[in-house]
Amino acid sequence: MTPRRQRMIVIGLVLAGVAVAVLLASAAFQESVNYFRTPTQVASGDVPATRSIRLGGMVADDSVARDPGSLTVRFTVTDYANNVDVVYTGVLPDLFREGQGVVTRGRLGADGVFEAEEVLAKHDENYMPPEVKEALANAKKAQ
């Protein structure tokens, strides 16, 4: 075996070892590597009641209701299979709107309402000018 081949094997083995370790680790911690849980996961009871978790999904259309005179807002987070009602008091990010992605951090109350301490907006990877968006929406309506 030439020294060059030896060096190649050394580096290959080390690399393979690290790759396997990372793979195993990320598989084992899949749950904690994931940033949020979906309403379906929450509905299936896969949620610790005592610990604070993140719930992510879409803000359901026509679900946002603001309490007049306070910063409290109620809305429904959906993954189009299950819904979770959320109540939050505080300032919402600019991109918070119905039909858009959202990630909330908080606890699931005994009444099934998710009490959020933090609400973050999750936007998608689509970028377009407003006119294009409008044209797309019109085309969809015409169908």
Partner: peptide
């Protein structure tokens, strides 16, 4: 910060 509402999230992969 302006879009999501946060500068940093330690839980984000």
């Amino acid at each position: 910060k302006p879009m999501w509402g946060t500068y940093w999230q330690w839980a984000d992969a």
